[in-house]
Amino acid sequence: MNTRNSMQISAARLALRWAMAAAAVIVLVIAGSIAANRTLFSPQHQVKALQQHLAKGEGAEALGLMQAQVPEGDAVALDGDVLKRTQAGITEFTTDKAQPVDGDEQLRTVTAHYKAHGVEKESTYTLRHAGKSWLLFDKWAFEPSTLPSVKIKANTVNEVTVNEQKIPLSAGVSTLPVFYPAILDASFSTKNFAADTRGMVVTAPAEEPVEIALKTEPTKEFIAAINTKVKKYLNDCAEQQVLMPSGCPFAYNTSARVDPATIDWSISKYPTIEVNYYNGAWVLSPLKTTATLTLTEQDLRTGAKAKKTVKEDYSFTAQLTTSTTEVSVVPVAGGEQVAG
Rank of each mutant, 00 (worst) to 15 (best):
N2C: 13
M7I: 14
L14C: 07
L16Q: 15
W18T: 10
M20S: 10
A22G: 04
A22Y: 09
L28Q: 06
S33D: 14
A36Y: 04
F41W: 14
Q46G: 07
L54K: 02
K56N: 15
G59N: 05
A62N: 04
G64I: 03
M66T: 07
Q69H: 10
D81Y: 07
L83Y: 06
R85I: 07
T86Q: 02
T94P: 04
P100A: 06
V101L: 03
E105R: 08
T109M: 02
T111G: 01
H113L: 12
Y114H: 08
G118H: 08
E122N: 15
T124C: 05
T126S: 08
L127V: 11
L127N: 00
K132G: 07
L135G: 10
L136V: 15
S145Y: 00
L147V: 08
L147I: 10
K151V: 00
Q165M: 07
P168A: 13
F179Y: 07
F179W: 02
L184M: 11
T190Y: 11
M200S: 12
M200H: 12
A204L: 05
E208I: 01
E208G: 00
E208S: 13
I212A: 02
A213E: 12
E217S: 14
P218H: 08
P218V: 10
K220V: 04
E221D: 14
F222K: 01
F222T: 06
I223Y: 00
T228R: 11
K232F: 12
Y233V: 02
Y233N: 05
D236Q: 09
Q241G: 04
M244H: 08
S246C: 02
G247P: 04
F250D: 00
N253M: 12
R257Y: 15
A261Y: 01
T262E: 03
D264L: 08
I267W: 11
Y278C: 03
T289Q: 07
A291D: 05
L293D: 11
G303R: 09
G303Q: 09
A304F: 02
E312A: 15
E312Q: 15
Y314P: 06
T325N: 10
A333G: 05
Q337F: 03
Q337I: 01
V338W: 00
G340N: 12
